[in-house]
Design a protein around this nucleic acid. Sequence first.
RNA 1: CGGGGAGUGGCGCAGCCCGGUUAGCGCGCCGCGUUCGGGACGCGGAGGUCGGAGGUUCAAAUCCUCUCUCCCCGACCA
Length: 483
Amino acid sequence: MNAERRFVEELDDFEDDFDRWYVEVVRKAELADEAPIRGMRVVMPYGFALWENMQAQLDWRIKATGVQNAYFPLLIPRSMLEREAEHIEGFAPEVAWVTQGGSKELEEPLAIRPTSEAIICPMYARWVQSYRDLPILINQWCSVLRWENRPRAFLRTSEFLWQEGHTAHSSLDEAEERTKLMLEVYRDFVETELALPVIPGQKSESEKFAGALRTYTIEAMMGGKKWALQSGTSHNLGDHFGKVFGIEFLNAAGQREYAFNTSWGLSFRTIGAIIMVHGDERGLKLPPRVAPIQTVIVPIWRKDAERETVESAVDGVRESLRDVARVFVDRRDDKTPGWKFNEWEMKGVPLRLEIGPRDVAGNQAMVVRRDTHEKQAIPLDELATRIPQLLEEIQDNMFETAKRMLDENTERVSTYERLKERVAANAGFSRVWWCGDETCEEKVKTETKATIRCIPFDQPGGTGDCIVCGKHSDTEVIMARAY
RNA sequence: CGGGGAGUGGCGCAGCCCGGUUAGCGCGCCGCGUUCGGGACGCGGAGGUCGGAGGUUCAAAUCCUCUCUCCCCGACCA
């Protein structure tokens, strides 16, 4: 047992059993707990506070592009859900149905939304008559239900929290522009606020959203097994949904046209990404910008007399930090300081301030970083300027560390053998040439379990041989196993 | 939904094969005291219809049937 391990004796080993580690961290850091309903979880206050901070940061970014928030019904009549064939085919196996209202059997079963295109598009059809009514740019924060078979806290639960944006446009170009814009919003949000480096790109035909023309995605690499996690998707729906749901309008030339739609979503599954990308053998490590508690103060004393002076110094510090950081003072007197250090590290708090008699005497506080474990004494009157700086440094360092992990575990692979080896060894992402044929894609999936995560926007240029069939290709894709 | 593993005080487990005193242990919890700068200690105490239902039996945590849930692997998915 090494030194790191001793700090977190109750936590399953990070290297040996990453999946178990994940489950343990979720519960012990008090992010979520099991619910008495299959596949569902209770998001606990600490986890929900994290989600609220994330929501706030994503919400303003979405609104800054001209989108407004609204709310649509939870239930979708069967006839509406089934109108778009590919769409319902894609979701049918995981839709839950309401068939009874009170004691009365419903004439038409109502689906609990697995996503809201089928209830939102019919509304858009009512609202649009002219090209002047377009675009419609609406987002909603809600939960959706998909009857999942293998639940995992945040990553895959029957009910999950997300935002789903739905827009309608008068041209395909405009819809395409919006689709890409929202992916960029996601990329910026995830990289800036969550310190998660991602690879933006396009989904292959077989991996795209049910009913979409094109799906764009941001893919992140998780720690542990170095699998991929789709962390946000943006779909160009073309005019399929416009036609099916009758979103018709007269253009400037007086001709009847169908609207072009987009939809885009980011769920609390990205909390799972935060846990798996940044976490370590001591537990959770939260990015300062969204951490519910950015700085925890642990007062230390022995005698009552010491307690008084320490507490008053702590009050002063807390006051001086009021406007610069989210601070929590851990005043519990039934836990020793050492116990608290471990607990707050487990909960991923970016900075810890230790203030004891020695510090009060020296007019300073011991400041400890969660990311580097670096410990330094900082004069009390400098805390208000140093703490925000340190939080920023931690945020940057966490991004850099995650970026290094992504880069170091991504390799250009030119032989199928090597690809198989890498997937089997959980070696990370492989960048390979792909001819575009679904048979080649399928073969890799069946034989190695890796899938095309995306066709990155960032293409190397030039051409090469398809990793499977050897045919000439000008497209490089990311192959990896995914959660 | 297929394969494997597991459900026993809040958590982690033992007991189960081979049915038989009052179902144990560690941690946690409550009280008192001593402690407190990297998971403190002593003494006293509380807490269980052994996941649920049904069955076999004089007797079930233990055997049988059904069922629910969780974890791992596979298929599906944000």
